[in-house]
């Protein structure tokens, strides 16, 4: 056992290197910049400080097709700019990892404070229907572990995988035992042949095999069905979550990322479900939720995941929105009282 003191963003870099990442492109933005800083110093990794986030996502798509496991990292404003590229990678079935370290608000918001406002964007941010796999670690050790898994899931699904964090999870320094994680870690090898070997045509147009099919409705319907099945099948190998606390309580709290850590003292009184794979939403939650009268989703946004959970459970549930970049246990306890759940 060797514990190292690491920052969340550093752990993401180390996880990516462990997973075999060979190319990174990014554009500076708080609170993601440390990822660029760290990777710019690695000699055996292709690195580009791109002209903008659009260039960065498109470079990692090209590099992935060229044969390199690839990643880009950003925060909200850059994540918005990357959405078209994420849709392209999804349509062309190119494995890439996109890290979004969430900060507060639409537009420039509050750059140095953390938030969880990009939950729906991570799954539905690109136009058209896409079905990305999304992970959200809540500690430095998990940043390492789930970056490796994000690369694995990208290979498994041949699609872009999103790794969410928040300012706190990205910036926190903690000790992490990466060697212990390495012992259990499986690294998925590439299946996509690098360019220069075939006659494949990767296109963002609807297509069948190597030819665009721009007016064939039946082909598109087949594509949607196949893609959805492929994503679900791959995601099922990565059904990560944590279920803890007072399982005989009548209330289940649902929280993820830094919020799940802030509420962890409540496990003496409540049951807590923490999804680590946020999307596709975990079916396991459906089974667990059956045993509870009250379900409360606690998150730093206006109820984004609450909505997804409601759709999954097909019942009315409650939510606590923590806004403004400050997440305090006392404030959440007060809100629980207002809901009559103390």
């Amino acid at each position: 056992m060797t514990k190292k003191l690491l920052q969340g963003n550093e752990a993401i870099c180390l996880g990516a290197i462990k997973a075999g990442m060979k190319f990174f492109a990014g554009y500076p933005i708080t609170p993601a910049s440390e990822i660029m800083h760290f990777l710019s110093r690695q000699k055996d990794i292709g690195f580009v400080h791109a002209e903008d986030e659009i260039a960065a996502i498109n470079m990692v798509i090209g590099a992935s097709l060229g044969g390199a496991k690839s990643m880009t990292a950003t925060s909200g404003p850059g994540f918005s700019l990357k959405q078209e590229g994420i849709g392209l990678a999804h349509m062309m079935e190119v494995p890439v990892v996109v890290v979004d370290c969430q900060r507060v608000g639409p537009s420039t918001g509050m750059p140095t404070l953390g938030s969880q406002g990009d939950i729906l964007q991570s799954a539905h941010g690109s136009h058209g229907d896409i079905f990305p796999i999304v992970f959200y670690p809540n500690s430095v050790e998990e940043c390492y572990k789930y970056t490796i898994e994000a690369f694995n899931a990208a290979e498994d699904s041949q699609s872009p995988v999103i790794l969410l964090t928040d300012t706190s999870t990205s910036h926190i320094y903690e000790t992490a035992d990466t060697e212990e994680i390495d012992k259990a870690a499986k690294i998925r090898q590439r299946t996509l042949e690098p360019f220069g070997k075939g006659t494949r045509h990767f296109t963002g147009l609807a297509h069948e095999k190597d030819a665009p099919k721009t007016r064939d409705s039946e082909n598109y319907k087949r594509w949607i069905k196949r893609t959805k099945e492929k994503q679900t099948r791959a995601a099922n190998n990565y059904s990560f979550y944590e279920y803890m606390g007072q399982k005989d309580s009548d209330t289940l709290l649902v929280a993820y990322g830094i919020t799940s850590r802030v509420i962890s003292p409540l496990r003496d009184r409540f049951a807590i479900f923490r999804p680590i794979r946020l999307f596709p939403i975990l079916d396991e939650l459906k089974i667990i939720a059956k045993d509870f009268k009250n379900i409360v989703v606690i998150e730093q946004n206006e109820g984004q995941y609450l909505h997804e959970v409601e759709v999954l459970l097909k019942r009315k549930i409650q939510g606590i929105s923590v806004q403004g970049g400050e997440v305090k246990l006392s404030g959440i306890e007060e809100q629980l009282k207002v809901l009559g759940l103390e």
Binding site: G46, G62, A63, S64, G66, S70
Partner: peptide
């Protein structure tokens, strides 16, 4: 251009 740049750097 950026897609080509990524492709070239990797390959």
């Amino acid at each position: 251009i950026p897609v080509a740049e990524g492709l070239k750097r990797a390959n």
